[in-house]
Simulated assay, not measured.
Amino acid sequence: MRTGIHRCILELLRALHRDHADLQLVPFSRTGNAAADLRVVLQQEGLPPGLAPRQARLDRLVRTVLPASPLPGKLRELAYTVRERAYESALVRALRSTSDPPLLQDCFQGTPLRKAFPPCHHLAIVYDLIPILFPLQIQAGFFEPFDAFYASLTANDTVICISEATRLDLLRCYTQLNPDRCLAIPLAASEQFRPEHDQVAIAAIKNRLGLAADQPYVLSLCTLEPRKNLAAVVQAFARLPGLQAEHAQLRLVLVGTSGWGDQAELAAMARDLGVFDRLLITGYLPDAELPALYSGALAFLYPSLYEGFGLPVLEAMQCGTPVISSNRSSLPEVVGEAGLLIDPTDIDALATALEAVLSSTELRQRLGADALERASLFSWSTTAGRIAQLYRERHNSR
């Protein structure tokens, strides 16, 4: 199962490899235990293997020479440390064998190569400031590594932020950074997200989820965690005026992996509000099934309290689905005027917006058309083009 960040990095690699043949791309894994998976993915995608095969072989070797699992406490920790250092040392030697110091692109938090290989010009991607701004809404242990990474960035580093909201948050929290070297370059949705006009395909995914072919539904897709504000979605759904009349067949479909929030609490809330039988929590669904699910929804709800970008919103818009979203953080940058933006803490506002979309075919059609037009402004070719130009500029300025 690929995370949102995994999918974004893969899309970026595809676009860079396809459109910018002058760039020599050398993908590598941040950790040894992920190298084998990276090697397989790169091979399947026809992308440059980079250091992944070498990393996978090295990881197998150090695990064989220094098996950690049978060892007691401190010896096990020592084995992990030695393995890590051997792994990092081999990577540094591999990069130093290149004729020209490379640009080192961090795609997620920090890499150990940053300190070990100072000739690199360092570029980092920052996705959001969630662990810093909302430490009480994340799992224990997340704040420290993220804070250490952001604090390690210097005024000479180039930082790519996935939205202007994220850029402003980063500069406000980490004042050592150079604003001119912190750039907002938006993400994009995969090209597979497009309107599904085949009603048979839409009926097939509905049938697999236990919905009738003609059953209407509204959709929300995200990791199930408090920041996503799904409690507000359930409450707003329960407040719909015609829930027992004109919307008597309407279902609320929640798609996504369980994060650290309590799914049972959502179910209990739905039961207390009398809408438990109208709620469908599907869990994870593969990307291939999502375009039909987006396209079949009467509306897509995303009242998140904070986002670094908000990729599910763009995916829904690219499928022509009417969007009701939060007016906070990066989401207005994505939605623009092509959806309904509400205060995510105002349950009545969310319920009113949903009722407006459900009760007006004309509004749904207009929002769907506006969503498609707005979504066309985002593409991985454009994003990769801006990043490739940045690579060239940084390389030529050394």
Rank of each mutant, 00 (worst) to 15 (best):
L91D: 13
G259P: 08
N396D: 14
Q318P: 01
Q249G: 05
V126E: 10
L240M: 07
V40L: 11
L279E: 09
L221E: 00
E77W: 12
A116K: 11
P322R: 03
L209F: 03
T175Q: 14
R239E: 09
T31W: 01
G256T: 07
A213P: 12
L13I: 10
L171S: 11
S397C: 13
E393M: 07
V234R: 02
R328G: 03
R83K: 15
G283Y: 04
L104A: 10
D346I: 04
L243Q: 14
G320S: 09
A270D: 06
Y294E: 03
S397R: 15
A238Q: 13
G46E: 07
A68P: 02
P179H: 13
R76Y: 02
V26P: 03
G259E: 10
F108Y: 12
Y302G: 00
L58F: 10
A351N: 05
D22I: 04
Q43E: 15
A155V: 07
R208G: 03
A248P: 01
A189N: 02
A316Y: 02
C8Y: 10
Q176V: 03
S295A: 13
D157C: 01
P145R: 05
L350R: 08
Q318V: 03
E265A: 15
L363Q: 11
A299H: 07
Y391G: 02
A15D: 10
L305G: 00
L171P: 06
L136E: 15
T98R: 12
C161F: 11
G368I: 03
R63T: 11
L221F: 08
L298S: 13
A35M: 08
F146W: 12
R30V: 12
G259H: 08
D147G: 00
V82M: 11
N178T: 05
R208I: 00
Q244W: 15
P135A: 06
A165N: 09
R374A: 05
L91A: 06
A384Q: 06
G320C: 08
T3R: 14
T31K: 10
L13W: 02
Y174T: 05
A213K: 14
Q24M: 04
P53W: 07
P322W: 02
T321Y: 02
S258P: 14
R278T: 03
P145G: 09
G242W: 04
G256N: 06
I130E: 01
A189C: 05
P67A: 08
G50M: 08
S330T: 02
R93Q: 15
R239A: 14
A375D: 03
R57F: 06
I160G: 04
P291A: 13
R278A: 04
P226V: 10
A213Q: 13
L273W: 06
V234K: 02
P291T: 10
A384K: 04
Y80P: 01
E196G: 03
A231H: 12
T158H: 07
L16K: 10
E164Q: 14
C319I: 05
Y302C: 00
G50R: 08
K115I: 00
L51R: 11
P101D: 03
V159W: 05
R18L: 15
N229S: 08
C222V: 05
L129P: 01
G110T: 14
P291I: 13
S304W: 11
R63F: 00
A388R: 06
P101V: 09
I9S: 01
D272Q: 15
S397M: 09
S89N: 09
Q43G: 14
V26H: 07
L372T: 03
S330D: 05
